[in-house]
Write a protein that binds this DNA or RNA. Structure first.
Lengths: 134, 134
DNA sequence: TTAGTTTTAATAATCGTTATTATTTATGGA
DNA sequence: TCCATAAATAATAACGATTATTAAAACTAA
């Protein structure tokens, strides 16, 4: 795990942590450009991959959409908004998921699982209500 | 839910159910082409969308990969192989996921959730073993 | 039968991401 | 310090999956 912390990586990492959101590569690209106007989008993609590989950040592959990256590397699940695709961290009890049956299903050797709660975020609920009034 | 069952839709639906697998649009396109050589890939995509919208089939959006479609519309979860991306149906107990806390997290109005067990399928485990021997 | 609607095939366009490549930047000895 | 080489970068082309466009064909209902 010899990872050279280049300027680009440092700023990418810093901006992700600073945002405290689950940003996509291009959202992060916009933020990083303010400090490094000449950085390339491919560099952002490549380094997000490298940083998540090295365990500095988490990679979120949510339901067929754009990948998002997570500033929080501790074990947790996610809620995501079906309307605006915002993602939030979640710390629900994982009990009932550590049962024997999950350890080996259908002959698979199980390495983990992904739990996504799907819903509508507060902001989108509010918007929907206001739409109704019209 | 007035859905005209065209020949194209009929055959797409039939081939998906026949396969009893979680096929992607292009895999299904290959199968359907045998009966309708002139069908267009876009037609397959469009009708898979329509059929899943109407509840005839399920749509699987697994972790950043190609969408797959499910012949089984009853409520269930999935295991998928991290190596070959094969997907299998699963009927594990959903207890511990119907708790109060899940109903409303972080102000979200919860509509559902997706649980993916990740692992290595029997075929890929076997392959890995044979690789080791060499 | 005909006018209007829906669906289709063919294909262009788009979106997110990865690959290529020439250039720049760092690194580790002589 | 200088040089060789290794790694990382910016720019951009290419890619794979999916969606949009459009003109033609197939239905449907008066």
């Amino acid at each position: 795990m010899q990872l050279r912390m280049t300027n680009q990586r440092e700023i990418i990492l810093r901006e992700l942590k600073k945002s405290r959101q689950h940003l996509s590569a291009d959202e992060l690209y916009d933020k990083v450009k303010k400090y490094m106007p000449r950085i390339s989008l491919a560099t952002v993609y490549r380094n997000l991959e490298i940083l998540s590989e090295a365990g500095f950040i988490g990679k979120l592959e949510i339901s067929g959409r754009q990948k998002r990256f997570d500033y929080d590397v501790t074990e947790h699940d996610h809620v995501y908004c079906a309307v605006c695709h915002r993602v939030d961290n979640l710390n629900i009890e994982r009990q009932g998921l550590h049962t024997r049956e999950i350890k080996s299903v259908k002959g698979y050797s199980v390495t983990g699982y992904r739990l996504e709660i799907v819903g509508i975020c507060p902001a989108c609920q509010k918007k929907a209500k206001q739409e109704k009034k019209k």
